[in-house]
Design a protein around this nucleic acid. Structure first.
Lengths: 180, 180
DNA sequence: ACGTGCATGTAAAGCGTTACATGATTAC
DNA sequence: GTAATCATGTAACGCTTTACATGCACGT
């Protein structure tokens, strides 16, 4: 499957990057939909070089700190485009430990269950607020074909997803209180 | 973390089950939020027996087919309850390969991108329809404390999640057509 | 001088999928 | 009889996390 491979190719295609840069991007916006730690990224970068998909230039920062700045080779860009254009099956919906626990909620006392739901609700609302703040940075939908268009699409996606989660939690709390 | 451990304990707590039963449950409703294959389930069951959390009785079906019917021991139920009542941090939002691809959508031609989005939309709508059919089976919110209450919560959650996905895809298609 | 962030790597263990393997039961 | 489903397991491989390990740069 090698999704990380394509995630990295996609990021390097946006602009030449170091392993550290890529690590940071997974902690930012993109982290809403894909993540990897540096311990996974550095070996993958090495592998992509071996496979002839990317190359790097060593740059010295300050006195002696070595940075490896990676950029795409033609073959890398080819494989990225191929992957992007594939019409893949719907991804089997994602795992969610909290919803799994709610499946077994009959074993939790009502007050405890409500507390758990409210704790999640607080956290989700906070997350949602952060996302909406980012959205406020857009005065309009970015131009089609720009990188910002992709940024915008996934940001909107993250917001809709969080809103749905918040809505679910609120309904669930209501159901706990209503249902005898 | 051992989430599978608790998922299995939770399922066995609902009613004594075989490995095969558990495998089926992960393919059904619960599969919207957690999944595991039989190749992961059988070894985990063995481990849970070793740990003294569950036990099994061998039952013969038909002439000679051996089934192992697992049930919870006290210690298993204890650990399940402890896990269910923990107030855990929000799960870092889940990976989604399709949204990752949309992050790089500036490299896809407009018509191709719209096709990809519409293909996903068709599949998501189909999924949503299936979920809503199941929801039609409930004439009212099940009683608090019943297993059906948990079923209901996660079904509602799955519906809200799919609706948000559908909404996002529809908006994205619109944006592709609007944005110059 | 000290702390935070920049920068790169490896090792071990755990989690998950795919493939390999086998055999009984049931409904048509 | 034969296909689908029931039923249980193992092996190999790949993906992911946690921990180990090191050193430079920059601001205060």
């Amino acid at each position: 499957m090698r999704t990380l491979k394509y995630a990295i190719l996609g990021l390097i295609n946006r602009h030449p990057s170091t392993g550290y840069d890529i690590t940071k991007e997974f902690k930012a916006e993109l982290g809403n939909f894909w993540r990897a730690r540096h311990s996974q990224i550095y070996p993958e970068l090495k592998r992509l070089v071996d496979e002839g998909l990317i190359e790097y230039e060593t740059v010295i920062a300050g006195e002696s700190l070595e940075k490896k700045v990676y950029s795409l080779k033609d073959k890398g860009r080819e494989e990225l485009l191929e992957w992007l254009n594939k019409d893949e099956k719907m991804v089997p919906t994602a795992k969610d430990k909290f919803r799994l626990r709610m499946y077994f909620s009959s074993n939790i006392e009502r007050e405890d269950l409500i507390e758990l739901l409210e704790s999640q609700l607080r956290q989700r609302k906070e997350k949602l607020a952060t996302l909406k703040e980012k959205m406020d940075g857009y005065s309009e939908v970015p131009q089609f074909g720009s990188q910002e268009f992709g940024d915008y699409l996934v940001l909107e996606s993250a917001i809709l997803r969080e809103e749905a989660y918040v809505e679910w939690l609120e309904r669930s709390i209501k159901r706990c209180n209503q249902s005898s």
